[in-house]
Amino acid sequence: MTQLIQLKGVAKRYDGTGAPVLGPLTLSVAKGEALAVTGPSGSGKSTLLNLVSGLDRPTDGAVIVAGRRIDRLSEHALARFRRAHIGMAFQFFHLLDDLTVSDNIQLPARLTGVGRREAASRAGELMEMLGIQQHARACPGRLSGGERQRVGVARALVNRPELLLADEPTGALDTASGHDVRDLLTDLHRGGQTIVLVTHDLSLAGAVASRTIHLVDGHLTLDTHARAVR
């Protein structure tokens, strides 16, 4: 099975001398897997996601994503790598309120040099797939939380990334909207999308993930696979 993510002896210290906030950690994530990362606040979940995305660099060890050792890439090369291989969905959406839903979704594609017509076509496909096509010309501020998260996921997927990273994607949502996003992530995983999901919500992890790891004080304390194929 192809390993999309490999962390080899990874540790992260922020003060340079103290105990690491994460690791040392060795971990692999296979292509097509949906991994949930759980644990209490301060356990290293967000640090792990930042290392996998290249937004942060390890103090020790190697981070390999899609066959590239990303901790050795320059900032410019990392930005290009992220645009091509990684999509990111955030707890608070980070949408641009002065752009329409369609333009928000197209933005990462346009930044990679995709033409306007092709980007608009891809955004249209995603909006239809995620059930938000009726909001194409609306601004995000007019949408519900669940709808805005769907826009955020569509934006994350517009460049057809191999890896989708989701950081507490239901954390700012009401229960009904959270269920919508849960169902969306489940459907994406069933379609073959590789997902790494950071969440405090064990019910979300149980519904979406084929595998769950638990971190405590930066160390891996549990690594379990779902009993049934979803």
Rank of each mutant, 00 (worst) to 15 (best):
E168W: 03
P108N: 07
G87T: 06
A34V: 11
A209M: 01
R68Q: 15
S74D: 06
T38Y: 12
T199M: 02
A109L: 02
A36L: 04
V29C: 07
G42E: 15
S46H: 11
A36V: 04
L107M: 13
R117S: 09
P58N: 03
H94N: 14
T199R: 11
L35P: 13
D187I: 01
R110M: 12
D98C: 06
G145P: 11
P58M: 03
R211K: 09
D187N: 14
T47R: 07
A176F: 13
Q149H: 08
F81V: 05
T212D: 04
L51H: 10
L164A: 08
Q106W: 07
R148D: 03
E128C: 04
H225V: 09
T221A: 07
L220G: 12
T194L: 05
I86Y: 00
V229A: 14
L188W: 01
V198Q: 05
F93D: 06
H76K: 10
R230F: 10
S203V: 08
V198M: 09
L55F: 12
L204C: 13
V208A: 09
H135V: 00
T100P: 14
M129A: 14
V216P: 06
L222Q: 13
D98Y: 00
V29P: 14
L49K: 06
L185Q: 08
L157I: 00
L202W: 09
D60M: 02
D217S: 13
R182K: 11
R82V: 00
R142G: 08
R82L: 00
V181M: 02
A136I: 03
R137H: 09
L173F: 06
L165R: 04
G87A: 03
H189V: 02
V198P: 06
D217V: 01
A226Y: 04
G67V: 01
T221W: 02
R68L: 01
Q3N: 14
Q149S: 10
R69A: 13
A154G: 04
G152R: 00
H219C: 12
G145M: 02
V52I: 15
T212P: 01
P24W: 11
V21I: 15
D223I: 06
A79N: 03
I86G: 13
L35R: 08
T38S: 13
L22W: 03
N104T: 02
E128Q: 15
L111V: 10
G178S: 02
